[in-house]
Amino acid sequence: MNGRHAYWTPFRGIVVRECLRFLQQHERFLAALVRPLVWLFVFAAGFRAALGVSIIPPYETYITYETYIVPGLVAMVQLFNGMQSSLSLIVDRELGSMRILMLAPTPRWFLLFSKLLAGAVVSVLQVYLFLVIAWFADIRLPLLGYVAVLPALMLSGVMLGSLGMLLSSAIRQLENFAGIMNFVIFPMFFLSSALYPIWKIGEASPLLEQICRLNPFTYVVEFIRFSLHLKLDGLSVVVVSASLALFLTLAVWRFQRN
C-alpha cells in the first residue's frame, strides 16, 4: 500500500460503511430524527409558557424556548449517536466483524479513530436533517451559523463517540449496555444546559448547578450554541477538546489491551 492508500482508503471505506449502515437501518434513522423533533414540538411547546428565558449570551435579545433548546437537542442527537456507535461496536465485537477491522493492515489506533470520525459524520448528517426540519417550522438561526457550527459538531461528535467507545470497551455483553446507558445518557442530558440555562438550575439548587458545571456535556451544548450564533466560547472549546483527548486515549488504550 502506498502512503495515500494506507490511510485515506481505509478511512473512506469506514465512513462509507457507517453511512450505508445508518441509511439502511430504517428504524435507527427514524428514531434519530423523531426523538429531537418530539422534544422540539411537544416538550418545548409545553414549556414555552412555563419557562421564560432571559437574555443570556450568546443571545442578544429575548428568544423563544424552542430557539433555546435547539442547540441542546442538536447535542442530544450527537449524544445518542455516540452511544449508538458504541453499541454497534459491541455488536461488531459479538458478531465477529470487529476482527475483520482489526486484521486490516493499518494501525489499530487509526482504525478506531476512523470509526469515531465516521460516527461523527453520521451524527452531523442527522443534525443537519433536524435543523432543516426546524427551519421549516420557523425556528431559524443565523444563516452562517449553519456552517460555523460544523467544526463544533465534528469535535463534539468525536468526543461523545470516544466516550461511547470507552464505555463499550468496559462492557462485555450486549445485555449490560442498556442499563449503563441509562446511567450515562439521561444524567448527562438532564444535568446540563440543554433544557434550561444553568443559572435557572442554580436558582432551584446550587448543588445541581455545580454538577451541571462539571458535566462535559454542558460544554458540548454551549460550544454548539455559541457556534450556531457565530460566537466562540473559549471554555467550552477547551473542555470539549480536553474531554476528547482523555476519552480517546483511554478508549484506544483499553481496546489495544483487550
Binding site: 492508500h5 482508503t9 473512506r12 469506514i14 475483520i100 486490516a104 493499518t106
Partner: peptide, 9 residues
C-alpha cells in the same frame, strides 16, 4: 468494497 478499502485497494 468495505473490505477492499480496509486493505487499501
Amino acid at each position: 468494497r468495505y473490505f477492499a478499502a480496509l486493505n487499501g485497494l
